[in-house]
């Protein structure tokens, strides 16, 4: 059982107009086996939280802490965080020139585990996972994300989730841009991994749609860089009915 603990996190970015604070005191604890949904309007800082946990250099942590089983995540480099068990399924996965999916997956798995995977099992695992996510076998020989459609990129993110088996998965708007079929396929992938009972999930989404397929234990509403309200799955239903107006009306929105 692992715990990812975020305490009073303040994060800003540097822009041409100067330093802009985005997260203004986020506190959140996720345990193995739990699924937390973070919902909120555009610009509320949801994706900033995801990128900050993964260590994207664009974001500056001004104060607060992130720990994984007591270890200071903020002092780790990006690759160290991944090896510690954190996985970010990205909102906009980049195309990586010159590296085939096969080569990339094996290199990453080797780096994450500290040893090369047994070739026979690995090949089988990759094939199975690809088939389950309905990813064509010929993707294995293509360069990472190169020429993939939006939906294909998202499925490849979940493919990695299933193959790398992280302690905590952060899904950054994995549902956006997916049609219903793709959404189901992707959700099934997340549920398959989650059902093994060894992963905690932080699901960041703008829409409630994905919550029909992935059942959250907790729902947090993000507004203007803070958690404005939290509750159980019923909060998501309420948001579906009412939208974010109630929150955005209460809180002055910063440009």
């Amino acid at each position: 059982m692992s715990t990812l603990e975020i305490k009073d996190l303040h994060v800003s970015i540097d822009t041409e107009q100067g330093n802009v604070p985005i997260l203004k005191g986020v506190t959140l604890t996720i345990n193995t086996g739990e699924t937390h949904a973070i919902m909120g309007p555009n610009g509320s800082g949801k994706s900033t939280l995801a990128s900050t946990i993964a260590g994207h250099p664009r974001y500056t942590v001004d104060s607060g802490s992130i720990t994984l089983d007591g270890e200071d995540v903020l002092s780790m480099s990006v690759d160290e965080r991944a090896r510690a068990g954190l996985f970010l399924a990205m909102q906009y996965p980049v195309e990586v020139p010159g590296v085939t999916m096969t080569n990339f997956l094996r290199t990453a798995k080797t780096a994450l585990d500290g040893e090369a995977p047994s070739l026979r099992h690995w090949t089988k695992d990759v094939k199975t996972a690809m088939a389950q996510l309905r990813i064509d076998a010929d993707f294995a020989q293509r360069n990472v994300n190169e020429g993939f459609s939006g939906g294909e990129k998202k499925r490849v993110e979940i493919l990695q989730l299933e193959l790398f088996r992280p302690k905590f998965a952060i899904l950054d708007e994995t549902d956006s841009g997916l049609d219903v079929d793709a959404l189901k396929v992707v959700s099934e992938g997340v549920n398959r991994e989650h059902s093994k009972g060894e992963m905690g999930t932080l699901l960041i989404t703008h829409y409630t749609r994905i919550l029909r397929y992935i059942k959250p234990d907790f729902v947090h509403v993000f507004v203007a860089g803070r958690i404005a309200e939290q509750g159980g799955p019923e909060l998501a239903d309420q948001l579906e009915a009412e939208g974010y107006d109630r929150f955005t009306a209460q809180t002055p929105v910063e440009a």
Partner: peptide, 9 residues
């Protein structure tokens, strides 16, 4: 960032 976020130094 993408490659490092997958554990690759």
């Amino acid at each position: 960032f993408y490659l490092m976020a997958r554990g690759i130094p």
